[in-house]
Structure formats: C-alpha cells, structure tokens
C-alpha cells in the first residue's frame, strides 16, 4: 500500500539477502527498489532524513535509474489495465486502461470501482469509460473498438 516496502527480495530463503548496507545517520531511513528500466535490474537505494527529505539515491547505473528511484519513492504510479462488462458486442468484456499512470495506492480501488461499470457497444478506442477515476483526474478509456452485433 505505501510505496515504501522494500522490493527485490523474492521471498526465497537463501536467495536475495538484505546486505548490511552503508552506515546511515541516526534517524535516516533507507528504502530499496528494484529498477525496472532494463535487464540489469539495479538495486536502488533511497536514503531519507528524519524529515522525509531524500538525502541520497544510490545503486543506479544510469540517469533513468535515478529518476525511477525518486519517482518510485515519492509518487509511485502504475498504468492500470483491466476489463469492464460490455453488452451488445461479440465478446462480453471490453479491455480498458488508465489514460495516464495512476497513483499506485489507488490501483485496487479502481478495479473494484470498474467492477460495476457496464458499457454498451458500439465502443471506440480511446472513448472514456470512467471519467476522473476516483477523483484522480485520470480517465479510464477503452483499449479497442467493439462493434455492435445482432447477438447483443
């Protein structure tokens, strides 16, 4: 729920073990993230002061990695993709997506909200299925066209 949970430990005993890490000032907290930028999969560390200011970002091997660590630490976001019910089309589900990445903490709540959304074919790709989802300012849009069929 909070984006602060250390990632990268796969839960496998004897696998990834948290190392002792560098010596950190009293009151500082270090959070680790696994970089998703490329197959290198750098273990990123974000050190935060007691006042929740980022003191240092470590462990990246490129600028993208550093940017990802800061973003992931301060405001983690995800593009949400799921389906909603659709009537009158050849198939019963319409794939949808958030038009922009949504704050990570809202992902589950959005999927719960979309469970009660029902649209009628025809639908066009990009059509707004749920506007300003959960007050985030982000729309949920259709990922594809679905024509109306007689069967509906």
């Amino acid at each position: 729920m909070s984006g602060l949970r250390p990632t990268g430990d796969t839960g496998e005993p004897g696998g990834a073990t948290p190392d002792d890490g560098p010596v950190v000032d009293a009151g500082h907290e270090v959070t680790t993230y696994l970089c998703i930028g490329c197959p290198l999969g750098c273990r990123l560390e974000v050190e935060e002061s007691a006042e929740h200011e980022i003191v240092e970002v470590r462990g990246f091997s490129c600028r993208r990695g550093e940017r990802f660590a800061r973003q992931e630490h301060t405001d983690p976001r995800r593009t949400v993709t799921t389906t909603v019910a659709v009537t009158g089309a050849r198939i019963p589900r319409l794939p949808v997506r958030t038009a922009a990445p949504l704050p990570k903490g809202l992902v589950r709540a959005l999927c719960d909200r979309l469970a009660s959304v029902r649209v009628a074919a025809p639908v066009r790709r990009g059509e707004v299925v749920l506007a300003d989802a959960l007050g985030s300012g982000i729309d949920v849009v259709a990922s594809r066209d679905l024509d109306r069929t007689d069967a509906g």
């Binding site: 593009t79 993709t81 794939p95 997506r97 790709r125 990922s143 594809r144 066209d145």
Partner: peptide, 9 residues
C-alpha cells in the same frame, strides 16, 4: 506504450 488491443488496432 500501448496495450495489446491498442497495438493490434
């Protein structure tokens, strides 16, 4: 970055 259906279409 597109979803699969968007890419297909």
């Amino acid at each position: 970055e597109l979803t699969g259906p968007e890419f297909a279409q």
